[in-house]
Design a protein around this nucleic acid. Structure first.
Lengths: 340, 340
DNA sequence: CTGTTAGCGCTTTCAA
DNA sequence: TTGAAAGCGCTAACAG
C-alpha cells in the first residue's frame, strides 16, 4: 500500500486540496456534508498527513531534541522520561541522544539536530562552556539546560540546589559525630561537581573542621572513579570515618570498593551519597542519600521549552532559572561509632 | 542569524543550486575550483542542509523510531543505547518513545511515527498480537522486534533464549537441593513471560518435581507485583524454599518483600532472578541471576533493520530470527540450607 | 464555504 | 562540468 497524499483524498472526495487541508487541521469553515465526504475518503485511503511536507511549509517540526550524557544512567533516564511525558502531551516528539560526556560527540549531535530543524532542545551538556552549542544559539533555537548550566549564554535552566543539598548532607554527617569526612568530587568544571564540593566546604568550614587534602578525591561521575577513590581512602594511614560521594554512579563504585576492602559500612566507615540509588535500601545498613526530583526536572525543562516555543518576541526574554530542592533521605549509614 | 539555504550558497558562489547540491552530497563531477568556491561560501554562510527539504524529495528521513515499554527500566535503557550507538554510526537518528506497556499508547505512537515518515522501527511491543502495528505493515515500513515477538506478521526478531535461560536457572536451583520452588511469572501473553514459565515447568518436570499451584504467582513485570507475590509466598503454610523471579523489576520488588518480612535470604529462602540487577552484588548473600546481553540485543536489532533498509526487493525476504544466549550468573543466593 | 496557486528547500533528470 | 526546471506534499494567502 502506497502512502496516500492529500491530493488522493481531494480527488476521491471531489474537492480541492485546500478544503482537505482545512479539515485535516480542524480549521473550520467547511460545510458539514463536505467534511463528511472528506473524512470518509481519508478513512478509505488510510491517509495520514505527511509531517515532512508539513514541516517544510510551516517551518516547524513538532520535534524536540534531548541530549544527555548517558541514557543508561538512571538519573538521566528519569529526566528524559519526564521530558517525554510532557512533550507527548503537547504533541511534540522527542529525539534522545547520548553524548557520552564528550564535547565532540555533542558538537556532532548539534549538527544533526540543526539539519533536522528541531523546534527546540533540552540539554545536559558535556561541557558547560557551551561553545559546542554555539550554532544553536546563532540560529536562535530555543534551548533549556537541565542539571548543568551553560556559561557564556543566556539560557533557561533547571537545576537542583546542589550546594544546599551537599551542605545539608555533610552537616548531617557532622551532626552524627564525624570530623574526618572525605569527599568523592565530581568534575570541577561542571556545576554539579563544583557546587556539591562547595557545599561540602561550606559545611566543614562552618563547623571549624579541617579539610584534609588526602580526603578529597577527584572523580568523573562514573562508577570506576568512585571505586578507585574509595579504595584509596581506605588505605590511608588515617582513613576518614565518613565518605560523601557526589553522584549515584560513583556511590555505587565506592560501595563496591568498601565491600571489597571489607571496610565495615556503618561501623568503620559511614557513607552518604548524592542521588538516590536502587541499592540504598538493600544494603545493611541502608544508605542515606540526597535524593532529587528527577522526573520533575525533566517535566519542568519541557515546560520552560514550551513557553519559549509559544512566545512571540523571543529576543526580548530574560532567561529563567529554576532551582528544585533536593531532599536528604536519612537512613542508617551515617552513625558515628565510637571506636575504643 | 537566519538559516542559509542552498540558494544563498549558490548565489554567493556564483553557481547554480544543482552544482551546490552536487558538492554537498559529494557526488563528484564538479571542477575543483568550483567546488572550492562553494565550500568557501558554505563556510561563510554557516550553511547546513535542511534535512526536512531533503527528506521531502528523497522520501527518506534517516530517522528510525524505537518503541519500548519503559525507558526507565535499565534493561530497555541498555537496549536503546545499543540501537542508538549502531544507528548513529550509520548516520541514522533515533526517536525513542515509551508505550508504558499500553497497546493504546503504542497505537498512538505508531500514528505519529507514520506521519513523520521514519525509515524503520525497532519495537518491544506492549501487545504481541501486533494489531496495533498494522498500519506499519500496510505501509511496508521496515520493522524489527526486540525481546518480544510479534505474532500474525512476519518480522525480523531478536530475542534471547528465554526458555533455556529459565530452564537452566531452575535446574540450578534443583541441583542445589531445592524441591519447593516457586515462580513469579510475567504476563503469559508475552513471550518472555510465557517462555520463562515454560522453562520452569520443563525443569520441574524433568526432575519429577511437583508444580504446586500456590507456588505460581502471576506478576506483570513491575516491581509491585514482585513485592506482593513474594509476600504471599512467605505467608503460605508451607512456603517455598526457593523463588525464581521472571524479570529485574519483579526481582527487586520480591527482594524488598523478603527483607521486609524478615525472611532470611540464603537461609530460609533462596532466590534466583531473570535479568541482571544492580543490587545483585550488594546483598548478602549476593543474588544469582540469569543475565542477558542487553546492549547487544539493541545492536543486533539495528543491524537487522539496517539490512532491511539496504535491501532492494524487500517483498521477497524471509524474516529472520536471532536468538541470543543468556548466561547464568551463579552467586550465593541459591544454596539449600538443611533446616533441622 | 470552496478552489487556485505560489511557494517551502532540496534533489534529480535533461539539456547544454 | 554546469544550469534550468520539474516536482516532493503540504499550507496559506487570495480570489471567487
Amino acid at each position: 500500500m502506497k502512502k496516500a497524499t492529500i491530493e488522493d483524498v481531494a480527488r476521491k472526495a471531489n474537492v480541492s486540496v485546500a478544503t482537505v487541508s482545512r479539515v485535516i487541521n480542524a480549521q473550520g469553515g467547511v460545510r458539514k456534508s463536505t467534511e463528511e465526504k472528506i473524512v470518509q475518503a481519508i478513512k478509505e485511503l488510510n491517509y495520514v498527513r505527511n509531517a515532512v511536507a508539513r514541516s517544510m511549509v510551516r517551518k516547524e517540526t513538532k520535534t524536540i531534541a534531548v541530549i544527555v550524557p548517558d541514557i543508561c544512567n538512571p538519573f538521566f533516564s528519569e529526566v528524559v522520561a519526564g521530558v517525554e511525558r510532557k512533550a507527548i502531551a503537547k504533541d511534540y516528539f522527542t529525539m534522545v541522544s547520548s553524548s557520552n560526556e564528550s564535547k565532540i560527540n555533542e558538537r556532532k549531535l548539534i549538527q544533526h539536530i540543526i539539519e533536522r530543524g528541531v523546534d527546540g532542545v533540552v540539554v545536559t551538556t558535556a561541557d558547560e562552556s557551551g561553545e559546542q552549542l554555539k550554532p544553536l544559539f546563532d540560529l536562535r533555537v530555543p534551548i533549556v539546560a537541565v542539571d548543568r548550566v551553560i556559561k557564556n549564554y543566556q539560557v533557561d535552566t533547571v537545576i537542583i540546589g546542589n550546594r544546599e543539598g551537599a551542605y545539608e548532607a555533610v552537616r548531617h554527617l557532622i551532626h552524627e559525630g564525624h570530623k574526618d569526612i572525605a569527599i568523592i568530587r565530581g568534575p570541577q568544571n561542571t556545576t554539579p561537581g563544583y557546587e556539591r564540593y562547595n557545599g561540602y566546604v561550606q559545611a566543614m568550614k562552618e563547623f571549624g573542621l579541617d579539610i584534609r587534602e588526602e580526603f578529597i578525591g577527584d572523580g568523573d561521575f562514573r562508577e570506576d572513579s568512585g571505586y578507585e577513590i574509595a579504595k584509596k581512602f581506605s588505605q590511608l594511614d588515617t582513613p576518614p570515618t565518613a565518605i560523601f560521594s557526589s553522584n549515584n554512579l560513583m556511590s555505587i563504585g565506592a560501595l563496591k570498593a568498601i565491600q571489597e576492602m571489607n571496610w565495615k559500612l556503618g561501623e568503620e566507615i559511614s557513607f552518604l551519597g548524592f542521588d538516590d540509588i536502587e541499592i540504598a535500601t538493600f544494603t545493611r545498613p541502608q544508605i542515606t542519600t540526597v535524593s532529587r526530583p528527577m522526573r520533575q526536572l525533566g517535566e519542568v525543562a519541557f515546560q520552560l521549552l514550551y513557553d519559549q516555543l509559544m512566545e512571540e518576541n523571543i529576543e526580548e526574554r530574560k532567561s529563567r532559572e529554576i532551582i528544585l530542592t533536593p531532599h536528604l533521605n536519612v537512613r542508617e549509614s551515617c552513625k558515628r561509632k565510637i571506636v575504643l
